[in-house]
């Protein structure tokens, strides 16, 4: 089993898997490192450049991991969306 799965079918992508958890864990670090790293870099502090660099690399890794899965979730879901919207309209108008 690969560390990072990059080929998904729609029903596989619907399940919560380790790839989701990678993104969930990396994402807050990306935000914090980019925010503080950029602020400190603008004052030319060496630590700032290091934090910013790590933040950017983590962001690339996160999107590399999550993008194929999200694409698959999207494609699978959009095919069913029309029916779901009809159901939503029924609830809105008290027809269900």
């Amino acid at each position: 089993m690969p560390l990072i799965k990059r080929n998904w079918t729609s029903d596989e992508a619907d399940e919560w898997t380790k790839e989701d958890w990678y993104a969930i864990i990396i994402s807050p670090f990306s935000y914090v490192l980019i925010t503080l790293g950029l602020a400190m870099s603008l004052f030319l502090l060496p630590l700032g450049f290091i934090l910013l660099g790590i933040g950017i690399v983590l962001t690339f890794i996160m999107f590399y991991i999550i993008d194929p899965k999200l694409k698959s979730v999207s494609e699978g879901y959009e095919k069913k969306q029309r029916e779901y919207l009809k159901n939503l309209e029924k609830i809105q108008r008290w027809e269900e």
């Binding site: 994402s27 990306s30 935000y31 980019i34 925010t35 503080l36 950029l38 602020a39 603008l42 993008d67 999200l70 694409k71 979730v73 999207s74 879901y77 959009e78």
Partner: peptide, 21 residues
């Protein structure tokens, strides 16, 4: 779609945080 929704939230906030810096 779902992917665009996720990206809009992530990147919109990323720019907010960059703005703060």
């Amino acid at each position: 779609n779902v992917r665009d929704a996720s990206y809009s939230i992530w990147w919109g906030t990323a720019v907010v945080l960059v703005r703060n810096s």
